[in-house]
């Protein structure tokens, strides 16, 4: 039994150590190294043969140069800021679009709910890339939306929508909508209808009852949904690179370009480390929130 237990623990443990934690160590190390025209394109490289002295030398050559570089070149901090801002605004938009859907589902006839639930989840199973791609055709200069608007006479000139932040907002709202709808639906579905009747009985109008009872009680779902949209949106790569064009600055795309186009591994690593540090705050907050909810449920 104990041998089995050891085996059961150690196999996934070792796997995650090797393929998750160690790689982060490497990223951290390279972020402190210097770029070099070599293979691999950075120095210092750690030389095992030099022993302890080699290790000390190696440590002494690490520095925070790349990080100070990040703060000096305004491309980076602008990209961080703009990522956070785009993620925050799209989270709010997703909430505004998602809440009525979740509310409608939770108040739908009981026999309809599984179907509606499936309809919300179904897009999640289809390719993310394809769902983003679908909007290129809609938002483009000659896209379906411009065709429709021109045809109905709302506009005379096609609007520029693709390759703007607007397209990125649409892309994020569209692809992350299920992550917002489902947690909110879960809290709304549990909502005791008596509470709304009690609020009305105590003098609330329908709308007041919604605002004073439904909304506060669905707060856990709103918070969970917002984190589930915000956290991945900050580091999003596919949406800004397909819909955002060159004018939309997002850090995931900067990292990609730094790595693949400029082959500047130390800078790319520093960008990654800083992005992770920024995300740790919302991640920890989210974790706490989920734990609190679990404890309340129990």
């Amino acid at each position: 039994m104990n041998l089995r237990r050891l085996l059961l623990i150690s196999v996934p443990y070792a796997w995650l150590l090797l393929l998750f934690l160690v790689p982060f160590g490497i990223v951290l190390k390279i972020s402190l190294s210097d770029q070099a025209l070599a293979i691999p394109p950075y120095t210092p490289t750690f030389d095992l043969a030099a022993g302890w002295q080699g290790f000390v030398d190696f440590l002494s050559k690490l520095d925070f140069e790349n990080y100070s570089w990040l703060t000096q070149d305004d491309l980076y901090w602008k990209a961080y800021l703009s990522s956070l801002q785009i993620a925050a605004l799209s989270t709010v938009l997703t909430l505004l679009v998602g809440y009525p859907i979740a509310y409608g589902m939770a108040n739908a006839p009981t026999e309809w709910r599984p179907t509606l639930m499936m309809l919300v989840i179904l897009p999640f199973w289809t390719s993310f890339l394809i769902r983003v791609y679908a909007w290129i055709g809609i938002l483009g200069q000659n896209g379906y939306l411009n065709q429709l608007l021109l045809w109905t006479g709302v506009i005379d000139e096609p609007l520029v929508m693709l390759n703007t932040p607007f397209a990125v907002y649409i892309g994020i709202v569209y692809t992350y909508l299920p992550f917002m709808v489902l947690p909110i639906y879960a809290t709304l579905e549990k909502l005791d209808h008596d509470l709304l009747e009690a609020a009305e009985d105590l003098g609330c109008s329908r709308f007041q009852a919604f605002w004073l009872v439904t909304v506060p009680l669905s707060k856990p779902g709103i918070i969970a949904g917002s984190f589930l949209v915000f956290i991945p949106a900050v580091g999003e790569f596919v949406i800004p690179s397909l819909l955002g064009g060159s004018r939309t600055l997002m850090i995931g795309k900067v990292l990609w370009d730094e790595f693949f186009s400029n082959r500047d591994w130390p800078t790319a690593s520093a960008v990654a480390v800083l992005l992770l540090l920024i995300l740790i705050v919302p991640i920890v907050l989210f974790q706490r929130h989920q734990q609190k909810m679990q404890e309340l449920d129990a």
């Binding site: 009747e197 009690a198 609020a199 009985d201």
Partner: peptide, 20 residues
């Protein structure tokens, strides 16, 4: 006359206390 305008109040079986 809607429930919120009646001089009538109700104590619910579930108590319906607002948990928040």
């Amino acid at each position: 006359v809607p429930p919120n305008r009646r001089p009538v109040n109700m104590m619910f079986q579930s108590y319906a206390l607002f948990p928040h």
